[in-house]
Each structure stands twice: as structure tokens, then as C-alpha cells.
């Protein structure tokens, strides 16, 4: 299965944050090149050999937005994830307009960073089909139906999106914030435990009685979907 490790360019000027993040990227099996200034990041960003770029916006020298704009101007199409302390929608939109592909605000949960990198690298493309086969289910996307053994389950539109997202990230931790953004387009955590209840509903629909659940809750981290249990 494993070929070359994913190569990541990581631009972040805060040494402590960089140390932690490089640790997580290393644990996930990625090869990381780190730079702490805008000039350095610009130089590396023009190298097409990277699979994903993680770009801090507030870099000393040249800011992250400008670097990515120049990257795109030089026809470098490497997917870019902005990592930033700016949370406004205007900044988010600006980040995407200059050519960024995704946007994560600090402070962040490291599984969320990894999930986003994976999604950018399109490794997850076939994981939906894989997870379906592994779970032994039959999926009917047009009717939003899952056939679990001999029971057919109808899902609500958002429940379906939630299940798809889980299956595409089989075995990976997904936090609440990530689910809210991808399924409901909410960039904040509402005061009511809506996601917990939704996940609970989905569990009741897809889990078989007397067997462990497909979706585990990890306290302080989020949820993990397992196709095979």
C-alpha cells in the first residue's frame, strides 16, 4: 500500500507551535520541510516537489497570502492549507481567493490538521468505496439508503453527509469542529450539544444490536468511525 511518504512544506514562525506540529506530522509518517520566515517559505514554495503546503498567514517578511498568490502566479498547483490566527470570514474568503485550498484557525486540534491534509492530498478518494466493502454494506446515494445485513436504513440528508464523511476518513479521528464545518457549514460550535445528538442518532441507525458501535467517541478528541469492528 505505502509508496513514498507524503512531502509537506510547513511555514510557521512560532518555534513552539512548529516543534509540536512537526512532531505530529512525523508521527503520521509525513516528511516535513519547515521554514520560519516568509522569504524562506517563498523560496521553497516554488519547488513543485511538495504534496501539500501548510502556510501560516502571519509570517515575518512576506505574509502567507502573498506567498501563495506568487506560487499560483508561477503555476505551482500544490494544495495549500492556511494555518492562521485570523478568524474572520473576510480573511477566510481572501485566503481562498489568493489560491488557498483550505483554512484552519489557531488553536487547532492536531487530528483535524491531519484530516485536512489527508483530504487535500486526495488520499481519501477511494476510501468511501473501501469502507463500504469493509463494512459489508450496500449504499444507495440517490435514496440515501444503507443496507446493513438485511435491514434497510433511510438517512436524512445531513445524516448521509455525516456518514460519507466518516467513511471517507475510516479509522481517523474527526473532531466536532471539523464535522460542523463540513456537514453544516458552521464555523463555530453552537451552545447546544447538537453534534453529539446527531452522531448518536446515526449510531442507532447503522449499528447492529449486540455488536460494538461503528462510531466511537474519544473524549477530548472527537469521533472515530471504523468500517470493520
Amino acid at each position: 500500500m505505502h509508496t513514498e511518504p507524503m512531502r509537506i512544506l510547513f511555514a510557521e514562525d512560532d518555534p513552539e507551535l512548529a516543534r509540536q506540529t512537526r512532531g505530529w506530522l512525523g508521527e503520521a509518517g509525513y516528511e516535513t520541510v519547515w521554514c520560519a520566515t516568509g522569504e524562506e517559505a517563498l523560496k521553497h514554495s516554488l519547488n513543485p516537489a511538495f504534496d501539500v503546503v501548510i502556510m501560516d498567514v502571519g509570517l515575518p517578511g512576506i505574509d502567507g497570502f502573498e506567498i501563495v498568490e506568487r506560487m499560483r502566479g508561477n503555476a505551482i498547483r500544490t494544495p495549500v492549507l492556511f494555518l492562521t490566527a485570523r478568524e474572520s470570514v473576510t480573511d477566510r474568503v481572501h485566503g481562498l481567493q489568493v489560491g488557498g485550498d483550505d483554512y484552519l484557525t489557531k488553536p487547532f486540534a492536531h487530528p483535524e490538521l491531519l484530516a485536512r491534509i489527508e483530504a487535500l492530498h486526495r488520499r481519501a478518494t477511494n476510501s468511501l468505496a473501501n469502507a463500504t466493502t469493509k463494512a459489508g454494506w450496500r449504499l444507495d446515494p440517490t435514496r440515501r439508503r444503507v443496507q446493513v445485513r438485511d435491514i434497510t436504513v433511510d438517512l436524512q440528508p445531513r445524516e448521509w453527509m455525516l456518514l460519507e464523511l466518516f467513511m471517507a476518513n475510516d479509522g481517523k479521528v474527526l473532531n466536532k469542529k471539523f464535522l460542523l464545518e463540513k456537514v453544516w457549514d458552521l464555523h463555530f460550535d453552537p451552545g447546544t450539544n447538537v453534534v453529539d445528538v446527531m452522531v448518536c442518532r446515526l449510531r442507532h441507525k447503522i449499528d447492529e444490536p449486540d455488536r460494538p458501535s461503528h462510531i466511537q467517541t474519544l473524549r477530548g478528541k472527537g469521533y472515530v468511525f471504523q468500517a470493520t469492528i
Partner: peptide
């Protein structure tokens, strides 16, 4: 926001 978020991110990372 920046001055608060970056140290919060450092602390959060260490807690993780």
C-alpha cells in the same frame, strides 16, 4: 486575536 490565539495554540498542543 493573534497574540491570544498563538499562545493558546501552544498550550493546546502540549495538552494534546
Amino acid at each position: 486575536a493573534h497574540e491570544l490565539r498563538t499562545p493558546l495554540a501552544r498550550i493546546r498542543g502540549n495538552l494534546e
